[in-house]
Amino acid sequence: MAAIPPAVRARGIIKTFGEVLALDHIDLFVPGGQVHGLVGPNGAGKTTLLGLLLGLTVADGGRLEILGAPVGRTLAVPDGVAGFVDGPGLYPSLTARQNLTALASLRESAVDASEALEQVGLTDVADDRVRGFSLGMRQRLGLAAALLTRPRLLVLDEPANGLDPAGKRHVHRVISALAADGTAVVLSSHRMDDLAALCSEVTILATGRAVFSGPVSKLAAESGDLDYRLVTTDPDAAREHAAQTPGLRLVPGKNTDVVVHGSTPSLDELIARLVTAGVALRELGPVVPPLEAAFLRLTETDPS
């Protein structure tokens, strides 16, 4: 049986806009069934790369294959790709159902409007006009539009933007289910919690270059030493033990919490000291989550 080609294989992709180098020799590999995160500061090149995957622009150099087909100036993105960049394009004067019905009439659709609306949790507002929708509802309707053709590659730009916790949970379930069925998903997000919940791998862009690409677990390991906040029954004793623990330093604070900076092994030693001394530990966590800390470290120290 022939091997199934990856959903995305990009090598050395270059894209310029005038004198601006938007993408600088970008490599990207996304197999089917993977949710791949794309993150970076504003202006890093995320939107440009997503646009290449959707056929909205073409690369100036490098090689791009989508669903096994080479994509260039004379060959459009193959069927089986769907998604949106910079928010979904919708008709505000039409209802949600009418929007999807109109889109389905323009292309061969494998999913009817009612099924797509049910998938994203918009059945109750199916016959409401889109002009009254919140940002989160528009994002969910854009996802429903992308699902009409049962895509093999789904490209999403900030799909959780504007969603309340229930809506975000619903969208996360839809994306995870699609990946479980073999669909490759490439999504951009500024939220590290979305990456941790959805993505198995992530690519971080900074000034058009990939400063990291790999498993989310490896990204977390890139965070280095962190600030940790401890809530204990005896803050003064906790500070005293922290000051005596090699590899830790106290971070000045204005409340009763104890904040220390250091490595995980040093923090483990402090916890052991507190337990031995009978100081109860009620709360412990990083001040900045490891994924966010790694993102900041990689993008802030990137030479440009």
Rank of each mutant, 00 (worst) to 15 (best):
P5Q: 08
P5L: 08
G12P: 01
G12N: 09
I13G: 07
K15I: 05
F17R: 11
V20I: 15
L23E: 06
L23V: 03
D24Y: 06
G32H: 15
H36V: 04
P41Q: 12
P41Y: 06
G43Y: 09
T47V: 04
L50Y: 05
L52R: 02
D60M: 08
D60F: 05
G62W: 07
G68K: 07
P70F: 02
V71Q: 07
V71M: 08
R73H: 14
A76C: 10
V81C: 10
G83R: 03
D86L: 11
D86W: 04
P92S: 04
L94M: 15
R97S: 08
L100Y: 03
L103Y: 15
V111R: 10
A113Y: 04
A116R: 01
L117I: 08
V120W: 01
G121S: 04
T123L: 13
R129D: 02
V130K: 02
R131I: 12
L141T: 05
L143N: 03
A145W: 04
A145S: 13
A146I: 00
R152C: 08
L153H: 04
V155C: 04
V155S: 08
V155I: 10
L156Q: 03
N161I: 00
G162R: 01
G162L: 05
L163H: 01
A166C: 01
A166H: 09
A166N: 10
V171Y: 00
I175A: 00
A179C: 07
A180N: 08
D181A: 15
V186Y: 07
S188V: 01
R191F: 14
D193W: 00
L195D: 03
E201V: 08
E201P: 02
G208E: 09
A210D: 08
V211Q: 02
V211E: 07
A220F: 10
A221R: 14
G224R: 06
D225S: 14
Y228A: 05
Y228G: 05
R229F: 05
L230K: 11
V231E: 15
P235W: 10
A238Y: 08
E240V: 13
R249N: 11
N255Y: 11
V258H: 09
V260D: 09
P265H: 01
P265K: 02
P265W: 02
D268I: 12
D268Q: 13
E269F: 06
I271R: 14
A272I: 08
R273V: 01
T276C: 00
E283D: 15
L284C: 09
P286I: 04
P286F: 01
E292W: 07
A294W: 12
A294N: 11
A294P: 12
L296G: 00
L298Q: 03
T299V: 12
E300H: 14
T301G: 10
P303C: 09
P303Q: 12
P303D: 12
